[in-house]
Design a binder for these strands. Structure first.
Lengths: 322, 322
DNA sequence: CTGAAAGCGCTTACAG
DNA sequence: CTGAAAGCGCTTACAG
């Protein structure tokens, strides 16, 4: 039914190896022969069966991208750039939402073992130093899990220090921190460490929420925080969703932003329109995506890569700081 | 290097066909033999090479989902459910953002021809009745393109009629319509038709924007509209992003919602938190996703399917109507 | 420069 | 119930 290399060979009156050579653009083919084959291919409307090709080459040219949830500006943007970069290397990308279930991770490991994909990018994970994980071509963002999984991150610590100092310079005297504690070892924890260090340095009180926050619990967390620390005049928020929820909440509370209360968020700027642009530390999503794809491709091809790559953030003043 | 079916056969002391039979859980295998093979598989840590499997079966078990842009609540949700449903049928999904470029569509057609994927779901498209398109296992949402591409849609016409009548019942006398004209034949056009019909029936003036609106032009469109039709007391908006932009704009203008101005949006409810819940016509995204996957799987397997499937929307009153 | 053959790792009639 | 063999559609040494 489908036209194969054999049909083309017969039509062109040449051997099947020769057809393969012109398909793959090898030089060692006579000009006349090449022409004949090309014509045959066009006449028969041939296109290569990549299943066969890949079996021979033992590469699927597919990688998976595992994100916690796709309906989130950070991950959506990341997915876009990952796909764009991957396609430059000839890879397609399988997008998987983990929805915080560990099952998806093992699914991906299985897919690698079964040669359905060549490797994967884990933006989140529960698993740790499992044997089978460490051997797979896997790379990550922010998460450190084991010495064999290279990852890309942003300068969480310094950026947070700078952001908090920024509020202090503008008069903040009681600064809070709201963030979700990562379930696993993650560079995101550096943000909390930075907060604590700055508070210590300035002898300021600790007003901290840093529990494990599930999706859709944000509202309650924020409410709690503002009840407990009603008089904060500055808040650092780790994460986009939380910052949106927080902003809506304190506005509803009648707080004057930024005069009564300054806000800085890690990951804030995703709205193109609107007036409430939260001052934020912007991660270089595009660069992170491209870098992480590069790492993965290197790893798939057995090259050595750096374990940790740090990319610089950008501080973007908005309307929530003085 | 990798352990193959041959290694397992040798280890278990059986033929390779027998190993294949136990892998595929065929009954015609002796209990003892099965056990031996199972043990060998475990001992060698065997997993099947699906590239070979698929070449044999001539199916990739991969489908593509083409969306205009992934960073949008509607498409993100859709992607999630499509993936979920597809995995039930044993399919993985390749997510592709078209970013409004026709190139991505031809890329997908090529991938089908090259047997990289078995089929695709187009949520948008530019191409029309091209030969090669019509023959491929492709299904769609909202878009009609040709008699061989089944699609799923929601009851755009009736839902819009109901939504507008809803505002009229609540006192609206001058109602506007804002929507982006689809570039191709789409069920979305039914919304405009419904608007015009209702206006005609009630002898009300037409206040319409229905041009082709590019991404990030929303702000300008909204501004224009409100300048031209400053005194509307009701607006029907087609699309989530536009409704958000519109809402922010009229609030900034000082309009009292809903007393001075009522708003209903097609696709509105994606914010879990926050106070400005726009009254909206909610599409059954999950059902649409599952249905469209079902159609695709049927089409891949050569079954006949309905050309058009209409799923019911839900009207969700929010704070923007009386 | 070119063809015939082996082989990638599977499945599946075909015999027995 | 089970093994040996053919074949899925390619690529790639190996000869010539």
């Amino acid at each position: 039914m489908e036209v194969t290399i054999k049909d083309v060979a017969k039509y062109a009156g040449v051997g099947i190896g020769t057809v393969s050579r012109v398909i793959n653009n090898e030089k060692a083919v006579g000009e006349k022969t090449r022409k004949k084959v090309l014509e045959a291919m066009k006449a028969l409307n041939y296109s290569r069966n990549n299943m066969a090709f890949r079996l021979r080459k033992n590469e699927t040219r597919i990688v998976a991208l595992l994100v916690p949830i796709i309906n989130h500006p950070f991950f959506a943007k990341l997915a876009y750039y990952v796909e764009d970069e991957a396609s430059k290397f000839g890879y397609s990308v399988l997008l998987v939402s983990s929805q915080q279930k560990v099952g998806k991770e093992t699914e991906i490991i299985t897919k690698i073992a079964q040669r359905e994909i060549d490797g994967a990018i884990f933006v989140t994970h529960f698993m740790h130093e499992e044997q089978d994980l460490q051997k797979c071509p896997i790379v990550s963002i922010d998460r450190r899990f084991g010495d064999n999984i290279p990852y890309v991150t942003s300068d969480n610590y310094q950026a947070t220090v700078n952001a908090i100092e920024y509020m202090i310079e503008r008069g903040a005297t009681k600064i809070g921190y709201i963030g979700s504690k990562p379930l696993v070892s993650s560079e995101v924890s550096e943000r909390e460490r930075a907060y604590l260090d700055v508070m210590a340095k300035h002898n300021m009180p600790i007003c901290l929420v840093n529990e494990v926050i599930q999706h859709e619990e944000e509202q309650a967390v924020v409410q709690n925080f503002m009840q407990k620390y009603a008089d904060v005049d500055g808040v650092f928020i780790s994460g986009y969703t939380m910052s949106q929820v927080f902003y809506d909440h304190v506005v509803a509370l009648g707080k004057q932003i930024p005069n009564q209360l300054q806000i800085v968020s890690y990951d804030g700027m995703f709205k193109q329109w609107g007036s409430n642009n939260i001052t934020s530390v912007e991660q270089p999503i595009e660069e992170m995506a491209r870098k992480v794809v590069g790492l993965l491709v290197d790893k798939i091809h057995g090259k050595e890569t750096a374990l940790r790559t740090v990319l610089p953030t950008k501080f973007v003043p908005g309307t929530t700081t003085k």
